[in-house]
Amino acid sequence: MIIVVDALNKDRFGDLLDQMFQLRARVFGDRLGWEVTITNGREIDQFDHLDPAYVIGLDDDGNVVSCVRALQTTGPHMLSDVFQVLLDGEPPLRSATLWESTRFCVDTQRLAGDGTMKAVSWATCELMIGSLEYARRSGISDIITVIDPVVNRVLKRSDNAPYDYVGSTKQMGKVPAMAALLDCTEERINRVRAFANIHHDVFAEDDTVRALLDRKAQIAEQIVAEMAAEAEAEEEIRVTAEEIRDYCSDLLQSARTEKERADAQRLVDMLVRQRIHPTMPVLVHSR
């Protein structure tokens, strides 16, 4: 399911954005080796402070599995401010009906758990459908997207090939990047839907997502509480040195066969060797 988080509802979805920034750190920092700033395991840049809109994909358990960021090209955006080199020194396109999309990524680690790329492809297409439909609904006709050749291949494979590129592919740090154009027409959206066999409304209501996240947080809290209770219970049955000594001497004394005696002796030896408790030598002497 897809949710759009922007300045108007981000107060309700801080936990979701936090998950998303962590996903971006794993993908762009760890996996792709982009030159991004990661603080505290989160990848956040200057454009995240400009109230962009995030289109975020969630799995059924409320985990962020994909995301992309959108900004208007009439105001500050990456191609006008930091990716200018991709445009060969030319001024960027600026239009009321053109949005820029950046930081497109999918959590392949989580989704490829079953050993196939099926879930990855599905989540990728769902995100593409969500972002194209969100833009279209907003009166946007085209998207210019800064991508690497990997995403470019993914787009082509999903029947969602860019109709053109602006500027040229340039090495940005360790990876090449390019600016691609996608139209937000119904034809394109239908092509991706047909390719992925996705025919439902991909968007989830804010309230639905909030309820899912709250339930998830509640379950997590429950598990933590249960673990704490278990740890406490374990503490309660912690035995004293005397009890261990008595247990061991009982074991030694009640041994009826040579094997039982040897086993009991091995336990005592181990307890002594591992210095489980300083009173263990007493046991040794008592045998």
Partner: peptide, 10 residues
């Protein structure tokens, strides 16, 4: 005040 911070029509 609220709508101006969105990127999409509100």
């Amino acid at each position: 005040h609220k709508a101006s911070r969105s990127i999409a029509p509100v």
